[in-house]
Write a protein that binds this DNA or RNA. Structure first.
Lengths: 148, 148
DNA sequence: CTATTTGTCTATTGATTTAGTAGAGTAACA
DNA sequence: TGTTACTCTACTAAATCAATAGACAAATAG
């Protein structure tokens, strides 16, 4: 299970992706729109800012903007920032590798071997899907509605 | 990340799978062989027993045995028993479905859509791999050693 | 029939993580 | 210079994780 925090982060980013280019969106607006506790969202956006996913502007007419284009932000990188390693075992993590203290001989560890396949499959999906992909269907639906 | 408990469960089952047919293996032996805290392992095996994965015998020459053949026990079912749902979101769980209280309209939830792909890929691996698969390479290695 | 052996079951614990809240502070702008 | 909106740190309640503790029950050997 991914955390609530990660879900919030992804949904906040889709809001920013859907906003007009160069137009900052206020934390309160994102929070209201996505039913996210405002104070909690502040922390999340701050994390995303520190990790170079978004930028912020202060004062009147301030808010948040995407730093990179939405189709350059993958689900995988967001999850890593918020929830930590993608891998199901520490000894399979790319960003936070840690030898399993009990098992020695990773090459022969069959459990590791199985979960390596899980990790590969998971990464394939998460790093090939972007925030833009998550926004696209919503936009299609919107256009469809407008044309109806 | 899967829990330590799940890792212990899987490794304990490989020990039982490797044991001679009909020969019970004592908790202490499994614990020693796999460096698992004995008292913790007791609980794990009890869980697996309650869920119909293993059976036990008490008293002298007692211990645990697999209830089903090793190639009929998948990683997926063991993980479900020990760690709970496989799905990354409650609204994607087969065994413990729960509507996400924030998002309404599952059909349109793009986050859900992405994680559905993750869940599918994960399940494909976990339910097609059995304890027998995990033991097989070890057996091959053993035979190779004996023949050397 | 009783002592030993091995599994059964429930409760408790300390550490960590999760999901927030609280509040003082700082930059930008009008 | 006041208001607005982001920034940063600290705190907390509840849940989960990884064990540990100990009383109990069944099987069996002598």
């Amino acid at each position: 299970m991914i955390t609530q925090k990660a879900k919030y982060a992804l949904r906040a980013l889709t809001v920013l992706a859907a906003a007009d280019d160069g137009e900052p969106v206020m934390i309160s607006d994102i929070a209201a729109q996505q039913k996210i506790p405002k104070k909690f969202l502040e922390q999340i956006l701050l994390d995303l800012k520190h990790q170079g996913i978004v930028v912020s502007r202060r004062g009147k007419s301030g808010g948040y903007l995407l730093l990179k284009p939405a189709d350059m932000i993958t689900f995988g990188e967001v999850l890593r920032i918020i929830d930590g390693p993608i891998a199901p075992l520490p000894c399979l993590s790319i960003t936070a590798y840690r030898k399993c203290d009990d098992c020695d001989g990773e090459q022969n560890c069959e459990i590791r071997h199985v979960f390596a396949k899980v990790a590969d499959a998971t990464r394939k999906v998460l790093f090939s899907t972007t925030i833009a992909d998550a926004v696209a269907p919503a936009k299609v639906a919107e256009v469809t509605r407008l044309l109806a």
